[in-house]
Write a protein that binds this DNA or RNA. Structure first.
Lengths: 199, 199
DNA sequence: TCTCGAGACTAACGAACGGTAGCCTGCTCG
DNA sequence: CGAGCAGGCTACCGTTCGTTAGTCTCGAGA
């Protein structure tokens, strides 16, 4: 399953440029220039510009979904599932900030049927979160009465990270993951720390 | 004095299309077609495509900032300030979902100096939130130890709304505002019960 | 040493882009 | 009535787009 390395380099260069300027704001000539190539040479390694976008977005959504499923499968405790799932969610949006931002902002640039497929994959990911929160509430481990909105709020909290997080910034990956985990647990109404007081 | 109503119609049509397809993914011909016009006629009412984007984004960021400042100026209680500010924040991203999404995703398409100016305006808005949360903690009304991250999390929670909220959807504006307000108060570690007391 | 294929290149295509020039129509108002 | 003008329109400009065709080069294997 090893893919040609040049194809991967092109996709990485495209990821950077799509992140900085957007899909329609990036030309094949710019992607090529970043690798000291000419635009037509790119077509020795890919079929179309659109396929680049499809690969980046579908790859990202598929990856975070698999990461989430793997992380939550390793425990039966619903709050621990939540904690591990959210840590994966947050860390994904730090480590793959560029891909994540593209997957969020450039879905409209996807042609059919890829656009519908990505939307379905995202709906599925959201559903995983909604179910997890629902289970936590059903077991009396969380108290929110709006599992749907809580899922949206939690997911969006993580997504936002991709817009401002910088690996060399003042906040470390671990600190951010821990702090945001407390935020998320607060949102669903689960006790997250001993200092929290509830009536 | 007759308003330049046509200019406003053009900006509204552009807002819809920039929302659906992005700035670079929208042509002046498409904007014109939505008003049953031809592209060159648009230039009777505007200077450039870029100016359309600048007006939409700067207008949106300026509006939410003013709404926030107005809402928080009407009380001295820091938690009530927070509550009113966040309600404004959430409702803005529902009512102006299209403008807000553009302001979030198309900043890279802004040319200088507009791009720097918008980034500065956003930095200012974030700073308002950070200060508000800091004051709440200083007065013992909130318990978070990460005012910076809490501000990001709360702002991003609201921004996300613009991506999925539909006015004719199953969740009403009031329900969403109320539920999200509880979420936000949980994040900063403030009691979310409706009864509050001045110190 | 010769062959051959991978992968770079240059040239160029048709389409679409943002924007300009200049014309025409029809309403307003002296 | 008739002049002026706001605001449409068609024609077209130069540029850039994604992509194709065809050529050249160079290293590996027979």
């Amino acid at each position: 399953m090893t893919e040609p390395s040049r194809a991967r380099e092109i996709r990485e260069a495209a990821t950077e440029l799509f992140y900085e300027r957007g899909y329609h704001g990036t030309s094949m000539r710019e992607i090529a220039a970043r690798l000291n190539m000419r635009a037509p040479s790119l077509y020795n390694h890919l079929n179309s510009k659109q396929q680049l976008l499809v690969d980046i977005i579908e790859g990202d959504v598929a990856l975070i979904t698999r990461e989430f499923e793997d992380a939550t499968a390793t425990t039966d405790d619903v709050i621990e599932k939540f904690r591990r799932g959210f840590e994966v969610h947050v860390r994904h949006h730090m480590r793959y900030a560029h891909e994540s931002k593209i997957a969020m902002t450039e879905v409209a640039a996807l042609e059919e049927p890829a656009q519908s497929q990505v939307k379905e994959m995202r709906r599925h990911y959201t559903e995983l979160w909604r179910t997890l929160i629902e289970n936590a509430v059903a077991e009396g481990r969380a108290s929110t009465q709006s599992t749907n909105l809580a899922a949206y709020a939690i997911i969006d909290m993580g997504i936002g990270i991709a817009r401002w997080f910088r690996p060399d910034g003042p906040v470390s990956e671990g600190t951010l993951a821990g702090t945001y985990c407390d935020f998320a647990l607060s949102v669903i109404g689960a006790d997250s720390s001993p200092t929290r007081s509830r009536t």
